[in-house]
């Protein structure tokens, strides 16, 4: 049962991601990407990591992509069908890097056939103990960085009186 669900979701995720890249219309691309985030979240759920699944939906599908859409709707990008297709010379380096990642994923997958232990649900308690005890300092540093970014954005976006 879980295995069938996994394959269905995996196919949806991959197709959604590919369509998000190839789709020329930005709003359609967002819808495809949200679909793939959603099925990715369900895969996390099947892997007994419900917390990660929820974060995937809340943060990526619910916050980041909504803001993307907000910007696209405000900008009015004109006729997207006229956007030029990227040609091979510009694609060579990204394809090379992507190839390296693909080869390493395949190598890892072939060498570690054992699937993750899904019998034990990872509770929110376990997750937060690891996050805030073991990586507490890193969390604090990241949150300080985010605070700096917010203050910086407020400074850049302030109203100027000298106009």
């Amino acid at each position: 049962m879980e295995a069938y669900l996994f394959y269905i979701l995996a196919v949806v995720t991959v197709i959604g991601t590919v369509m998000a890249i190839t789709e020329q219309h930005p709003v359609h691309a967002i819808v495809y990407l949200v679909t793939s985030f959603f099925s990715l979240a369900m895969i996390f759920f099947l892997l007994s990591a419900p917390l990660i699944a929820m974060f995937e939906v809340i943060i990526y599908a619910g916050a980041v992509m909504v803001l993307f859409m907000f910007v696209i709707m405000m900008l009015d990008l004109g006729r997207p069908s006229e956007a030029s297709r990227p040609f091979l010379r510009r694609w060579a380096l990204p394809m090379l890097l992507g190839g390296i990642i693909l080869v390493s994923i395949v190598t890892v997958a072939v060498n570690h056939i054992s699937s993750p232990d899904t019998s034990r649900m990872i509770s929110i308690n376990d997750f937060s103990v690891v996050l805030f005890r073991k990586y507490g300092v890193a969390i604090e540093i990241i949150s300080m960085q985010l605070l700096f970014a917010v203050v910086g954005a407020l400074y850049l976006g302030r109203k100027r009186d000298d106009r």
Binding site: F38, P50, A53, M54, V57, I58, A61, G62, V66, M121
Partner: peptide, 13 residues
Amino acid sequence: NVGLLLFLALSSI
């Protein structure tokens, strides 16, 4: 066990 988060996730969808 993530019921409250599911609510937040679905309302953002």
